[in-house]
């Protein structure tokens, strides 16, 4: 009988998944509150004291920040539902909880720019205001978090295992402990 279960590997155990290269290491970040905000972004940012949003390869810090993913759309990290409910808000924006929709990976080390060169076509010295870009051919949200050697990547949950396998195949990340 046809058995398709052997055609694909099981998903990585994200809590413990690690890829270690000489100059860069990758791990999954779990448990982040992720919200999608559409509409009047300036009013949303002011209302929640989030300051400026972060663009492509921009630098976000802390556990609470907003990343621009379209002209009228933000991916907001660390904003709990208790502070801002899902749905339409009279100030002119809509909020949707996205926590289960996106996996988050952190790539850390002096080799992150080499990883960017391999995975994207964006100009690292002029990346633009929008953090949604193609990373390994997948639409991801990509920016730095904490410092300029930590790249954070949000990817659609169903595609995360595919991105992980691609990362495993990279010479930059080969030769270390597997995470699968």
């Amino acid at each position: 009988m046809l058995d398709n279960s052997a055609r694909w590997r099981p998903e990585p155990d994200w809590e413990n998944a690690r890829l270690e290269g000489r100059t860069v290491a990758v791990r999954a970040v779990t448990g982040l509150a992720q919200r999608l905000v559409s509409g009047d972004l300036d009013r949303f940012l002011a209302r929640h004291g989030l300051g400026c949003d972060v663009g492509a390869l921009g630098l976000a810090s802390g556990g609470r920040y907003a990343v621009r993913v379209a002209r009228d759309r933000l991916l907001v990290v660390g904003l709990p539902a208790s502070e801002c409910a899902d749905g339409w808000h009279a100030d002119g924006y809509a909020v949707t909880t996205m926590g289960s929709a996106l996996r988050v990976l952190d790539a850390r080390g002096e080799g992150v720019r080499d990883l960017l060169a391999r995975a994207t076509t964006v100009d690292p010295d002029d990346p633009g205001p929008c953090a949604a870009l193609r990373f390994f051919g997948l639409t991801c949200t990509v920016y730095f978090h904490g410092d300029a050697q930590t790249l954070r990547i949000h990817v659609e949950r169903g595609l995360a295992a595919s991105l992980w396998e691609w990362l495993e195949c990279q010479p930059l990340l080969s030769g270390g402990a597997g995470g699968g």
């Binding site: 492509a56 379209a70 002209r71 076509t121 964006v122 100009d123 002029d126 633009g128 205001p129 929008c130 949604a132 870009l133 193609r134």
Partner: peptide
Amino acid sequence: MQLFPCPFCGPRSESEF
């Protein structure tokens, strides 16, 4: 690779369009 200008994002690879 050819670059196309998105009015919001700026220059990006044609494969994103």
